[in-house]
């Protein structure tokens, strides 16, 4: 019971954080700002999936968080390498 309430509260907090990070993604004056905002958005999505796991008790969704952590690392490294060397 208390865990469900905590999951609801953390999902609300996570949604507000997603809006704030999206504002930085739209505003960001330079390209690395947008990359940092995308990285943060992926981490927030990972946290939201974890809160949904705690809410429903279906822990199969943890597989998604593995893939998400892998993809955010590879994407960030690829963006940074492209910005530095201008080739992939």
């Amino acid at each position: 019971m208390i865990i469900e309430r905590a999951a609801y509260i953390s999902m609300v907090i996570m949604t507000i954080s997603l809006f704030i990070a999206f504002l930085r993604l739209v505003k960001g004056p330079s390209t690395p700002d947008r990359i940092v905002a995308l990285d943060l958005i992926t981490m927030l999505t990972l946290g939201m999936i974890l809160a949904y796991c705690m809410l429903t008790g279906q822990f199969v969704y943890l597989n998604t968080t593995i893939i998400l952590a892998l993809i955010t690392f590879l994407g960030t490294v690829a963006y940074a390498r492209y910005l530095e060397k201008r080739v992939l």
Partner: peptide
């Protein structure tokens, strides 16, 4: 109670990260 406190405090840290990425002046 311990699990719930950990969950909500993790969410609050993520909110702090989002506020920081909006409000700080520099990359």
């Amino acid at each position: 109670w311990f699990v719930a406190i950990l969950l909500v405090s993790g969410a609050i840290f993520m909110l702090l990260a989002a506020v920081g990425v909006l409000r700080f002046p520099d990359l």
